[in-house]
């Protein structure tokens, strides 16, 4: 039994029929071929599948595509504008907040949520805000620097 769903992703409407057991992350990656979002642990711990679901961060490996019917989703592909990278992406680049890059899409989406809730976080608040996202390369130091840099650059501006 397939279920029709209608989802807006990065401003574009997608209407598809899906198996009820299809995970949102597989819908995004395999059905729609938006492969920026990653599957890491597949157990809602590592955060590499983080997307914004109706404006708030969610782990798309622990959500069924049918649960997202009618939702508005932002993935990493939806962050950059026509005028270039989003400030958080720019800051991750400038501060070397990534090495292999696998965790980066989720890390950036979680940073987006963090800065939405707290536009001027302390280093400790950044670490708490990103505790659902694991990075096995950087040791987190440069990720914290990148988020701090993004917060400073975005101050007073739009997110």
């Amino acid at each position: 039994m397939k279920i029709p769903i209608s989802v807006q992703i990065n401003g574009r409407q997608y209407d598809r029929e899906v198996e009820p057991r299809l995970l949102l992350v597989h819908f995004i990656r395999d059905t729609l071929r938006l492969t920026g979002t990653k599957v890491g642990c597949d157990t809602s711990q590592c955060g590499s599948c983080t997307v914004l679901l109706d404006g708030v961060s969610a782990k798309s490996c622990t959500c069924l595509a049918v649960q997202a019917d009618g939702a508005s989703i932002t993935t990493i592909e939806g962050l950059a504008g026509t005028d270039g990278l989003h400030q958080i992406q720019e800051s991750f680049w400038n501060k070397h907040g990534l090495q292999c890059g696998f965790c980066t899409p989720g890390m950036i989406m979680a940073s987006q949520e963090l800065l939405r809730c707290n536009s001027d976080p302390s280093d400790e608040e950044i670490r708490h805000g990103l505790e659902g996202n694991l990075c096995r390369c950087t040791g987190y130091q440069n990720i914290v620097r990148a988020v701090r840099d993004a917060a400073g650059s975005m101050e007073g501006g739009s997110q």
Partner: peptide, 9 residues
């Protein structure tokens, strides 16, 4: 509980 994304859902 968990982390921010878990708490959102």
């Amino acid at each position: 509980i968990g982390d921010p994304a878990v708490r959102n859902r």
